[in-house]
Design a protein around this nucleic acid. Structure first.
Lengths: 242, 242
DNA sequence: TTCATACTTCGATCATCATCGAAGCATCCG
DNA sequence: CGGATGCTTCGATGATGATCGAAGTATGAA
């Protein structure tokens, strides 16, 4: 009927307050679950699910299934850019944000995620492994490098046994406290087992928290030095048009 | 925590197809009456009136009473930029209302973006101005160079008047068809006015399209030479014969 | 296995709002 | 003045869609 792109479609997606709240929350760059998004939007889980499927159908968000959780993120940088543009436009009006509430600090520091290490330490470990070129590639596809194989074997991990198992050796797992990837897969499991076996860390009795000992802290820091760029946040690339 | 209707308000305003059509029509830069807008949106005058009052309450449009007519325009440059940005996002996602209508190639070649030139010609003009060092800086921050001031003045543009206005002289605007920046701001407006005044180009009656005359094409090419290799491919792709 | 958690789907309700007919203002013209 | 035009307001209707309860699915935990 009319010429040009359909802005009404996108507008209607953003136009609903619940969806706008969800998108605003996701603009933070962290992956959030449906339950969390429902909380920030102030609606029930059923309604949130409906909204999320609409947003996904509209290509604004993407989901990543992780066990029984579904982590939602903005589809790509373009979406973030567009939403931030709208927020900038609406700057002369008041705007509200909802932040994820604080959690148990011990859990945030180090905890068990199914069978591997998660939390700040887990993220830091993967960062270091990638920086040291033990593991190549970031994202869903991780692979052990040649030199990395030697380094892992030197730790006393039976790499052949890991490879033999049907499970993938290296895998990313999205961290709920850090909202960044940490190492999963059979190698991730083997490393956590190693820490526990060596007595570097102990599991808290009635919690998922993992408590590192003094020696464990030192050994961990020595084994997985903090890369200089590890604290760099994953912010949206605001590429500038030339 | 519950209320965050900033982008939701704007989104809902744009989210209605009738309003989106009106806003798209107003992006042409011409002041339009309620009757005209009702026609382009395909709705009755009563419905249009309701929509227009909502758009005005939302600060997206402004009206100017003149006799028994009411002329509506976009509220300011920011609205035009925001809508053009949304169009770029929508076009990139393939959200088009009508599969490449007959006017589509003409629109891609040269069109009015609220009050300045957009499309292939708009992008090309900015490319050339930057290459010729009339305008310095890339991205959001554009600035006229010393030598550029002379060149603009030589065209017969009253630069002092542009500077005097509160609006920025040079500004980027994201092109929805080219997905690159073209020149906005008071200088962008002045240049488009220049083309129209000199008779180099004419506005299509009921469209955003701008049609350059033969002389206009030549003068434009002379004034804004194509920088070496960067845009050849794109120009060839979107250039329309006749 | 059984239970719990996370989420989806179905179904029904309810509110919003886009739409248009009709009437009401306002302005211009003759 | 009367009549015509441009637009707004009122009121009723109808459709879309947001919402949530209940039930269903999938995965993890005990």
């Amino acid at each position: 009927m009319k010429e040009g792109p359909d802005i009404a479609l996108i507008g209607s997606l953003i136009g609903d307050p619940a969806r706008a709240n969800m998108l605003t929350a996701l603009t933070g760059g962290k992956a959030l679950t449906a339950t969390e998004l429902a909380g920030t939007a102030g609606i029930t889980l059923q309604t949130a699910s409906s909204h999320l499927s609409k947003l996904e159908a509209g290509g604004l968000i993407a989901q990543r299934k992780q066990g029984r959780h579904r982590y939602f993120t903005l589809a790509d940088d373009d979406v973030g850019l567009m939403i931030e543009g709208l927020m900038g436009f609406a700057a002369y009006r008041g705007f509200t944000r909802h932040r994820t509430g604080p959690k148990d600090p011990a859990l945030r520091k180090a905890r068990v995620c199914y069978n591997h290490l998660a939390g700040d330490y887990g993220v830091r470990m993967l960062d270091s492994l990638v920086a040291e070129e033990v593991i190549a590639g970031v994202g869903d596809k991780l692979q052990l490098t040649k030199s990395g194989e030697g380094k892992i074997t030197a730790l006393g991990i039976d790499l052949a046994a890991l490879v033999k198992s049907r499970r993938p050796v290296c895998r990313t797992c999205l961290d709920w406290s850090e909202r960044r990837s940490h190492l999963s897969g059979s190698l991730g499991q083997a490393l956590l087992t190693l820490f526990l076996d060596k007595g570097w860390a102990k599991r808290e009795p009635e919690s998922r928290a993992v408590r590192f000992t003094g020696t464990g802290e030192r050994e961990f820091a020595k084994l997985f030095p903090l890369p200089a760029s590890s604290t760099v946040e994953r912010v949206h690339k605001h590429t500038v048009e030339a």
